[in-house]
Deep mutational scan, measured.
Amino acid sequence: GQTTVQVRVPYRVVGLVVGPKGATIKRIQQQTHTYIVTPSRDKEPVFEVTGMPENVDRAREEIEMHI
């Protein structure tokens, strides 16, 4: 079944991970077949990644490449 993982990043890289108009996070979602919730600016900088476990792992690696 599907799993949801929280990926915490430093505040300063949230914009990098999301990309211009969300382009980068969309690409990560498409490439890894996951659904990613982006943290809002006034909340903790935690991305929520949902999908099959192996896909979630890949998405987390993609996010962490920006750190």
Rank of each mutant, 00 (worst) to 15 (best):
V14N: 00
E64L: 14
E54H: 09
R58D: 03
V17F: 03
P39Q: 07
S40L: 12
K43N: 12
V46F: 06
G51L: 02
V46E: 02
V46H: 05
V56E: 00
E64K: 11
M52I: 11
T38W: 08
T34G: 01
H66I: 15
E48A: 09
V9R: 05
V7A: 03
T38C: 14
V46C: 04
I28A: 03
R60H: 08
Q29W: 04
G15L: 00
T32R: 00
V56D: 03
V14I: 15
T50H: 09
K21A: 11
V18W: 04
Q6S: 13
R58T: 00
Q2I: 11
D57M: 15
A23K: 13
R8E: 06
E44R: 03
E62P: 00
N55W: 00
R60T: 06
T34F: 00
R12E: 15
L16A: 13
I28W: 00
T32E: 03
T32K: 01
K26G: 02
V49K: 03
S40K: 12
M65W: 11
T32S: 09
N55L: 01
H66P: 01
Q29T: 05
N55Y: 01
V37Q: 12
T38A: 13
E54A: 12
I36G: 05
G51C: 00
R60E: 03
V9E: 03
P45F: 08
I28E: 00
V37M: 12
S40D: 15
I36P: 03
E64C: 09
V17W: 04
V49W: 00
R41G: 11
P45D: 04
V5D: 00
I36K: 03
N55T: 04
Q6M: 11
V17D: 03
D57I: 12
A59Q: 02
K26Y: 00
G1R: 13
Y35W: 12
P53E: 07
D42W: 09
H66G: 07
T32Y: 02
P20A: 08
N55E: 08
G19A: 01
R12D: 15
Q2E: 13
V13Q: 15
L16H: 13
Q29K: 02
P39K: 11
E62Y: 10
S40I: 09
A59C: 08
I63H: 02
T34I: 01
R8G: 02
T34D: 07
P20D: 11
G15T: 03
T24P: 00
Q2S: 09
T50Y: 05
V46W: 04
R41Y: 10
K43S: 15
T3Y: 09
D57N: 14
F47M: 02
T34Q: 00
I28S: 04
E61L: 10
M65K: 15
K21D: 11
Q30H: 10
T38D: 10
H66E: 12
G15Y: 03
L16Q: 14
V49M: 02
T3I: 15
R8A: 05
G51F: 03
Q31R: 14
V14P: 03
M52D: 12
Q2Y: 13
A23I: 09
V5W: 01
V46G: 03
D42Y: 11
Q6W: 06
T24N: 15
V9S: 02
Y35Q: 15
I25V: 09
V49Y: 02
V9H: 00
G51P: 02
T4Y: 03
I25T: 03
D57P: 04
E44I: 00
P20R: 13
V18E: 10
P10Y: 00
E44Q: 09
Y35T: 15
G22W: 03
K21N: 12
G19M: 00
P53M: 08
E44M: 04
Y11W: 15
G19K: 02
Q2T: 12
R8M: 06
E54C: 07
D57S: 10
I36S: 07
P10A: 03
I28F: 07
A23D: 06
E44W: 03
I67D: 06
T4L: 02
F47C: 08
V18Y: 10
A23C: 09
G51Y: 00
V17Q: 06
I36F: 00
Y35H: 15
P20V: 07
T3P: 02
P53W: 01
T24M: 02
M52P: 05
I67K: 02
Q30I: 02
V9G: 06
V18K: 06
M65D: 10
D42S: 09
K21T: 05
T4M: 03
G19S: 04
M65E: 13
E48T: 13
A23H: 10
V18F: 08
T24R: 08
V37C: 11
G19C: 01
D57L: 13
T38R: 08
H33R: 11
Y11F: 06
Q29S: 11
E64Q: 13
Q6A: 12
P39E: 08
V5K: 11
P39Y: 09
F47E: 04
T50M: 08
Y35L: 13
F47Y: 04
E54M: 05
Q6D: 04
A23S: 12
T34V: 02
N55V: 02
T3Q: 10
E48M: 13
R12F: 12
P53G: 06
E44S: 07
E48S: 10
D57A: 15
V17G: 05
K43H: 14
R60F: 06
Q31G: 05
T38F: 06
P39D: 08
Q2R: 11
I63F: 00
T4C: 03
V37F: 00
T38Q: 10
T32M: 04
P45M: 07
I67G: 14
K21H: 10
V49R: 02
R58E: 05
K21Y: 13
H33S: 14
V17Y: 06
Q2W: 09
Q2C: 12
M65P: 03
M65F: 10
V37P: 03
D42I: 09
V56I: 11
P53K: 13
Q6Y: 15
Q6H: 12
N55K: 04
E61K: 14
R58K: 14
A59H: 01
Y11V: 11
I36M: 01
V13K: 15
V14Y: 06
Q29D: 09
Q31H: 14
Q2P: 11
M65T: 14
T4K: 08
R27D: 04
L16M: 15
I25L: 11
P20W: 05
V13H: 13
V18M: 12
T34C: 08
I25Q: 01
E61S: 12
F47W: 08
E61V: 11
S40A: 14
V14M: 11
K26V: 03
G15R: 10
I25F: 00
R58W: 06
T32I: 00
I25W: 02
K26F: 02
K21M: 13
Y11I: 10
G15H: 13
A59P: 01
T4G: 04
Y35K: 15
K21E: 12
M52A: 12
Q30T: 11
T3W: 00
T38G: 14
P20Y: 10
Q30A: 14
K43R: 12
I63T: 04
R41E: 13
I67S: 13
Q6R: 15
